[in-house]
Design a protein around this nucleic acid. Structure first.
Length: 901
RNA sequence: GGGCGGUUAGCUCAGUUGGUUAGAGCACAUCCCUUACAAGGAUGGGGUCGCAGGUUCGAGUCCUGUUCCGCCCA
């Protein structure tokens, strides 16, 4: 029976899309145990991941490729283990980011958001959402994501919006949601408040300005004060000194005059003042500095907001009203200089707060906003990790997690934007009362007036994200999905959003559902360029996953992301790495091509029931069992990269490099050996494909399909135990055989055979023997002679020896004339090449080899004579002793060879 | 200022219960288009694992201190 020949190169472009389609249509992405089905079994524990929802208007980048690859690996692995798996996909409305993108595009058309009006603008964003949602979700699919798309969610879906409202109202009812004027991080460009987490600090050069705070008593005395932001002088309401700072004792309780404005403010004392910094006396601007704000509260100081929402000076800052904050800084300083109030200015490194989204400098300001009181939630979240109900991987992030939660601040959740969840609060113009409601209202429940208006603000994007693991499953309804799939199992995401998202999800999950939202957190690192630099468009070092997938295939992109990374560590990616893995996919393809084409060379059934495995068979099978066991152990401890690497190495440097070559010989010998070899080829390839499938789903599924077809056409005895499954994606995960002979002598024998073959190849290369030339050889193999006689065909084929004249003897230390010799692993090797032997040079070479071997002997003798021999475990000692014996035989061989020159 | 991570071959990185001449990919050198694969094969050169101590029969692997780099928090 002949099979259609597979192409010489793996054509991923022709494979990936149709395979993905097929998987989806066959329903493999759906949980195998689904509450929606009649045969549902609620006791069968599922494995569940909620996807970190990508920004709906975002373009696919390597960060997405990273988490999709990682999570798909976890899902596919568990699916193959027969566990019901659910991966819930979805997208995020990403308030500020999306609004900015849409606004920018409208601006390009000459349309301003304000002129469009809120309703029209939001409509536009929804149009965008529709358009870009399709793009991003298609791109996620391209990566191979085996999500259940029927369960896809969007953070502004009706259901999720209901969850958001429920949570807001619940927090309000519990006294954990409050509204009021507080100091917030104000973004003058976006004209909204942002949370502490959305502020990034960057060290930038600036100045420290020293000036005089004149005493109000007209004495002409002054307090020297330093500031980095002179414009805030306009809002000063006190000058503070340390209570124990003797330099300033006499000023305490007196009054000083605010420069230019002439306001009179007190000199106060506070422990918070750092005596070492600046002059030791600090100006206090409670309305524009978070630390000053606290002092202001403690001392009951007035809070004077001197800026408008665009950070220009307001009427409180007269005569600078209307100036931009930085222009004001210059003008005020110049005026002060003129007034003789300036002492000096010196260069100073500043820690500038900038908006994470827009990059501009954040202005701390007093503003009326909604805040969530997080302390009670944080306590629950701390407990859940402390008592081990939630495990963070890698572990060292737990400390960072604790540290943040132990210092939790209230969360400013309102945003002055148009795109997002509207705050469910109504204000009555008549009675002035405020109503917080789960449903929309048009009448004031307090006074019955119709003159009510909903709060114009929306909620922080993360206010919907933190509910994601349960809101996507139907919460607050107790849906069958929620009941079965919640709590989820694994939260896999980047460590950069540990606080933004993970910690808040744990807080939210614990508080609102009373359960942990997931039991494990796996934090992956960031993907950087090949030199560890952050990828950015301006640097031009961005690797575009779409281009890479077009050119090299999805599997080629996924593999280095998975294998090149360890939990919590950043990973560097270059196109070169992807190429290397495209090559691996092609290697897989070609090995499979060989296996498939070999099948028909073997008989369909063996003649005898007792199949004698060859040395190579025993070896490759034992190594495979060890591999399976290792992969299982590594997956269990989340060392996915190491697992992938080991499969890669086994496949390429053991199965392909050695077993396939030996198989060619075994197949040629026909009969039962050929049958057994074919079966072994299939069994090992099949197992490798299973192990690799979570990493590289497409190429493995494609090959597996061909293998299954060819193997079942040839013989039903090639099938795996339990038969061929319908598809690799749902095929059984390999389980290592219980009996594992790690020290099966076949393994050591095979290694010795490989050593000898390598040594011969080495000499051939060194002596420039033509690669195809068969040369006569003698092996002095002492007690291993039988082994090498048995393997003489493999030996002669793989080392290109002349089988006619190959001699294998128990012992011949004497070197025959005109041979090049060496010894390795206790075996003496004599090769006849057609070149006259330069005895002096040979002697030189052999002496060098002998010296090397002798140094090893000395090392091992010393080791075995030390305390090592008694204290180390017996197996380790025996291993070293055996090594020593081999070196000794090798040395004897070499010495004899030198002597006979 | 506090905390965390990294420091291993020319480059990018693995190396998780400490086991005794340290691994991969890429790059480099020589040879080979041999009927699975030139996106390949064979062979080779190249690190003593940032530094200094310590624990141990034995340390890249554990402990202490420290350099430099990066990150987070304040």
């Amino acid at each position: 029976m002949s099979h259609k020949e597979l192409p010489k190169t793996y054509d991923f472009a022709a494979t990936e899309e149709s395979l993905y389609q097929w998987w989806w249509e066959r329903g493999y992405f759906k949980p195998s145990n689904d509450p929606a089905n009649p045969d549902f079994d609620p006791d069968h524990t599922p494995y569940v991941i909620s996807i970190p929802p990508p920004n709906v208007t975002g373009e696919l980048h390597l960060g997405h490729a990273m988490f999709v690859s990682m999570e798909d690996l976890m899902i596919r692995y568990h699916r193959m283990k027969g566990i019901p798996t659910l991966w819930v996909p979805g997208t995020d409305h990403a308030g500020i980011a999306t609004q900015m993108v849409v606004e920018r595009s409208l601006n390009a058309e000459g349309i301003r958001r304000e002129s469009l009006g809120r309703e029209k603008f939001v409509e536009k964003v929804w149009e965008w959402k529709k358009l870009y949602h399709d793009r991003i979700s298609k791109q996620i699919r391209r990566l191979g994501a085996s999500c259940d798309w029927d369960r896809e969610r969007f953070t502004m879906d009706e259901g999720l919006s209901r969850a958001v409202r429920e949570v807001f109202v619940k927090l309000y009812e519990d006294g954990l949601m409050y509204r009021g004027p507080r100091i917030v991080n104000w973004s003058p460009k976006l004209q909204t408040a942002v949370s502490d987490l959305e502020v990034e600090y960057s060290e930038e050069p600036g100045f420290l300005y020293y000036f005089k705070y004149m005493l109000a008593d007209g004495s002409g005395e002054y307090l020297p004060v330093a500031t980095t932001r002179p414009e805030t002088i306009l809002g000063d309401t006190a000058v503070a000194v340390h209570p124990e700072d003797e330099r300033f004792t006499r000023f305490i309780g007196k009054e000083v005059v605010v420069p230019i404005t002439g306001r009179v403010i007190p000199v106060i004392t506070d422990e918070y003042v750092d005596r070492e910094f600046g002059t030791g006396a600090v100006k206090i601007t409670p309305a524009h500095d978070p630390n000053d704000y606290k002092i202001g509260l403690n001392h009951n100081l007035p809070m004077i907001n001197i800026m408008t929402q665009t950070a220009t000076i307001n009427e409180e800052g007269a005569p600078y009203t209307g100036l931009d904050r930085f222009e004001c800084r210059k003008k005020l300083w110049a005026d002060m200089k003129e007034a003789g109030l300036v002492i000096k200015e010196e260069p100073h490194k500043l820690n500038i707060p900038r908006s994470q989204r827009s990059g501009e400098i954040i202005e701390p300001m007093i503003s009326t906003q909604w805040f969530a009181r997080m302390q009670p939630l944080a306590d629950l979240a701390l407990e859940a990790v402390r008592d081990g109900r939630i495990k963070i991987i890698p572990e060292h992030f737990t400390k960072i997690y604790y540290n943040w939660l132990e210092n939790i601040q209230d969360w400013c959740v309102s945003r002055q934007l148009w795109w997002g969840h509207r705050i469910p609060v109504w204000y009555c113009a008549e009675c002035g009362e405020m109503t917080v409601s789960r449903t929309d209202i048009d009448t004031c429940p307090k006074c019955g007036s119709k003159a009510i208006e909903q709060d114009p603000d929306v909620l922080d994007t993360w206010f919907s994200s933190w509910l994601w693991p349960f809101s996507t499953l139907g919460w607050p309804e107790k849906t069958p999905d929620y009941e079965y799939f919640y709590p989820t199992t694994m939260m896999e995401t980047g460590y950069d959003i540990l606080f933004f998202w993970v910690a808040r999800m744990i807080m939210g999950g614990m508080y609102f559902t009373g359960k942990i939202p997931f039991s494990q957190v796996y934090l992956h690192g960031l993907v950087r360029d090949e030199h560890g630099k952050k990828m950015s468009k301006t640097k031009g070092n961005v690797v575009d996953p779409l281009t890479v997938m077009d050119e090299l295939g999805t599997d080629a992109l996924r593999f280095p992301l998975l294998v090149g990374s360890t939990a919590g560590n950043d990973t560097n990616l270059s196109v070169k790495k992807v190429e290397a893995n495209r090559n691996f996919a092609n290697k897989l393809w070609n090995a499979a091509r060989f296996v498939i084409s070999s099948l028909e060379k073997a008989p369909e059934v063996p003649l005898s029931d007792e199949l004698q495995p060859t040395l190579a068979d025993t070896w490759i099978w034992a190594r495979l069992q060890a591999l399976i066991a290792n992969v299982e152990r590594l997956f269990g401890s989340h060392q996915y990269g190491e697992a992938g690497r080991q499969i890669y190495d086994y496949f390429w440097s053991e199965y392909a490099d050695w077993y396939l070559e030996i198989a060619k010989i075994q197949l040629a010998s026909g009969g039962d050996t050929a049958f057994h070899t074919a079966k072994m080829l299939v069994r090992v390839l099949d197992t490798c494909l299973r192990l690799l499938h979570p990493f590289t789903p497409f190429v493995t599924e494609a090959i597996w399909g061909h293998l299954k077809e060819a193997a079942s056409d040839q013989s039903d005895q090639f099938a795996p135990e339990g038969g061929w499954e319908e598809a690799l994606i749902i095929a059984r995960w390999p389980v290592a055989e219980e009996k594992q002979d790690a020290d099966d002598p076949a393994i050591a024998d095979m290694l010795q055979l490989q050593d000898v073959i390598r040594a011969i190849r080495n000499i051939r290369t060194e002596k420039n023997v033509k690669p195809g030339k068969r040369i006569p050889a003698i092996l002095a193999a002492s007690e291993k002679a039988a082994l090498f006689r048995e393997q003489r065909e493999i030996l002669s084929v793989l080392a290109y020896l002349d089988p006619e004249t190959l001699q294998i003897t128990e012992q011949t230390f004497e070197k025959p004339e005109d041979t090049i010799s060496t010894a390795v692993s206790g075996i003496g090797i004599f090769l006849k090449i057609e070149e006259t032997v330069d005895k002096a040079a040979e002697s030189e070479r052999l002496k060098k080899e002998l010296a090397e071997v002798k140094s090893q002997i000395i090392r091992l003798e010393k080791l075995l004579n030390s305390a090592f021999a008694e204290k180390a475990p017996a197996a380790v000692v025996t291993g070293e002793r055996e090594k020593l014996e081999k070196y000794q035989t090798t040395a004897e061989n070499l010495q004899a060879q030198i002597d006979s020159l």
